[in-house]
């Protein structure tokens, strides 16, 4: 069974949210049916893994042989532009989501390296995009999640509104858990207006000085000799900020080189400076502390007390280790 909506052919009831109360009710029923069907498919006994676009398939290890593959529901289900929220199936590709939101001048800055990636996949990995400097970590874009747990039941966490502190924040726990605690079925995300202007600049100036100079740039990427800086916002502001960068040796360009997609080395933002002059091909996110590499990176160890808690969380939420066996986020 393939629930992925391919290339914009979306479920019939999409967009019904603005219609009559009846339409709203049937929309809700349809979403519920999709989610329930997914829960049935996940079931409650054998090892399972969700397949998205396999854009991040090896992160944290690959599923053990014999693990059954399922696909999360797909489709942009509800988007109310004036609420700045969007509800979609976790199997929706980022490309589809972006295309849908673009119609009303909105976006969710997930920014995966390959936008064939699914929303669920991006969140399960917890990988923020290159504009994290401006828009924050991906987990802060998530408002509500529905996931299927190890017992095959649907669990809702968070809430549909832009602000919510009702109950424990399981949604944040799921982001970055690689599907080892539950399989995402549906998410509600916060949307943002697409900035009116956007400009990349590049040059060999000091990216750290540039960071201090600018007011909330969207991205600063650096490879040890050159930096690429993204400015977004009001056209006049983008122009003014760009002109501040010119004396520092930055000039407009089309964008950065492709971001290496294999290893993600995590360090403190201030430690990046020490990378200057080190070899290899890498691209670092200044202000964030992330180094993208072509080769795999050994993850930092987890403190024993935390490792114990993580093991116990896994133990409690998936006692039979049937959710994504073989993967481990630490």
């Amino acid at each position: 069974m393939n629930r992925r909506s391919s290339g914009g052919s979306e479920p019939q009831w999409e967009g019904a949210s603005t219609g009559s109360p009846d339409a709203g009710a049937s929309l809700a029923a349809n979403i519920a049916a999709e989610v329930t069907a997914f829960a049935h498919e996940v079931g409650s006994c054998d090892p399972v893994t969700v397949v998205g676009a396999q854009a991040h398939w090896d992160v944290g290890g690959t599923p053990l042989a014999g693990t059954r593959e399922v696909r999360a529901p797909a489709g942009v289900w509800e988007h109310e532009p004036s609420e700045m929220t969007v509800r979609c199936g976790a199997g929706t590709t980022v490309a589809d989501l972006s295309a849908h939101l673009a119609q009303t001048g909105q976006m969710v800055p997930l920014d995966p390296a390959d936008d064939a990636a699914t929303v669920g996949g991006v969140l399960a990995c917890g990988f923020s995009g290159h504009r994290r400097l401006r828009y924050g970590h991906v987990r802060d874009l998530v408002l509500q999640t529905r996931h299927v747990d190890a017992s095959g039941k649907v669990v809702t966490a968070g809430g549909p509104t832009v602000k919510n502190v009702s109950g424990y924040d399981l949604a944040r726990l799921l982001v970055g858990s690689l599907g080892t605690l539950g399989l995402l079925a549906e998410v509600i995300l916060r949307t943002l207006p697409v900035p009116a202007a956007s400009q990349w600049l590049t040059g060999d100036g000091d990216p750290f000085a540039a960071f201090d100079l600018l007011y909330r740039p969207s991205s600063i990427l650096w490879n040890g000799s050159h930096a690429w800086i993204l400015l977004e916002g009001d056209p006049a502001d983008v122009a003014a900020e760009a002109s501040k960068l010119e004396p520092a040796g930055f000039a407009p360009c089309d964008g950065p080189p492709p971001i290496p997609a294999v290893g993600r080395e995590s360090m403190r933002p201030s430690d990046l400076r020490a990378l200057a002059g080190t070899g290899g091909e890498w691209l670092a996110e200044v202000g964030i502390g992330l180094v993208h590499r072509h080769e795999a990176v050994q993850a930092a160890p987890v403190a024993p007390a935390n490792a114990l808690l993580m093991d116990q969380l896994k133990q409690r939420l998936d006692p039979d280790n049937r959710l994504n066996p073989g993967r481990r986020p630490w």
Binding site: G126, R172, L173, G176, S177, S266, P329, W330
Partner: peptide
């Protein structure tokens, strides 16, 4: 303080 501390988001 680093970019992506490993493991679940405790």
């Amino acid at each position: 303080v680093d970019a992506e501390p490993p493991g679940f988001d405790l």
